[in-house]
């Protein structure tokens, strides 16, 4: 394990009946064997993981370059979720880049909208728009606003940035998918600090109430927010237990471990009758030594020298 943080991987009802909507099991330890089972539902092999890691490296490079050119923006929280987003866009989700509004597509809602550089990087890498456009981040006249604007950028599903709201959009999209009898799935990526917004829990309540098993909430649990450690500012812990108490299936994983990310996504896809929360422990600024785990890098962009150093580290 490459993380300096102790983990207790928990998985609710991993080996038991996953269709029971009323029971949240308290912290099943996930053995390596269990992750192997989950990973084995679809083909997760070393080659797939290596490819996804390559994609995440490109995303991180683009994030750093973009933020360097913009001179402002959210570095730490864009980098922390890069592995999760790479898994979603290059392995999990059904999308059609030539038809961004394809009615049957899976939806990704960046509820932590300040990680817009990550979203733009992955959309460009998927081919929703030319990667040259990334240079326009945060600049006047560019579609790439400081926070995502669905009216301006193909592939952006929700105009987010005001924290707490994206998860509610995801509830609405999941309800619409059910009404339309479509089998698309909805993924919302939240910050851990974002969980302090009261409306998140209104939405979480609704997700369980309407048994939205086509919905997955992923919490980028990097432990830091603007003013300090989330536990010091206003602790949202324990996160998985809260989701569980609301009636969600809650899974804790290492958000940089591809087998665990993919295993959890597999589990969510196989689960009926309730939504799944994936609480992904991550390192803010992941991948760049002088940015990792530092509060100051929440809303700061690298200068040209720092960009060069970061890109060298990401080679």
């Amino acid at each position: 394990m490459h993380l300096g943080v102790p983990f207790s991987f928990k998985l609710s009802k991993c080996n038991e009946d996953r269709n029971n909507t009323h029971v949240f099991s308290q912290g099943y330890s996930v053995s390596n064997q269990c992750w192997e089972v989950l990973a084995g539902m679809h083909e997760i092999n070393e080659q797939v993981v290596a490819e996804l890691q390559g994609k995440a490296r490109v995303l991180r490079q683009d994030i750093v370059k973009m933020l360097g050119q913009a001179g402002s923006g959210h570095t730490g929280g864009s980098l922390s979720a890069a592995d999760i987003v790479a898994c979603l866009y290059f392995w999990e989700m059904k999308l059609d880049t030539r038809n961004p509004r394809w009615p049957d597509r899976d939806r990704f809602v960046l509820s932590k909208g300040h990680a817009a550089p990550l979203l733009y990087a992955v959309l460009a890498e998927k081919g929703f728009f030319p990667r040259e456009d990334l240079a326009g981040l945060r600049k006047f006249g560019s579609p790439l606003q400081g926070h995502p604007d669905m009216k301006k950028v193909p592939g952006v599903e929700a105009s987010t940035g005001s924290l707490g709201q994206g998860i509610a959009w995801a509830i609405g999209m999941a309800l619409a998918g059910r009404l339309d009898r479509k089998d698309y799935r909805v993924y919302a990526l939240l910050g851990d600090g974002e969980l302090q917004e009261g409306m998140v829990w209104e939405a979480v309540m609704a997700g369980a109430h309407y048994r939205l098993d086509n919905l997955v909430a992923i919490v980028d649990f990097n432990g830091l927010q603007i003013d300090g450690r989330v536990e010091d500012v206003m602790s949202p812990l324990p996160i998985a237990a809260k989701f569980g108490a609301f009636g969600w299936q809650a899974v804790e994983i290492d958000g940089h471990d591809y087998r665990q990310i993919m295993g959890a996504l597999n589990l969510a896809r196989e689960t009926r009758g309730r939504p799944t929360a994936i609480v992904a422990r991550t390192i803010k600024g992941r991948g760049i030594s002088f940015i990792e785990n530092l509060v100051d890098w929440h809303g700061k962009a690298p200068n040209p020298e720092q960009v060069a150093q970061a890109l060298a580290e990401l080679m």
């Binding site: 959009w169 999209m173 009261g198 409306m199």
Partner: peptide, 14 residues
């Protein structure tokens, strides 16, 4: 608050 956000998501889905 969640009602308005949910409304947005439903509207975004047509």
């Amino acid at each position: 608050q969640n009602m308005m956000g949910t409304a947005a998501g439903l509207a975004a889905a047509g």
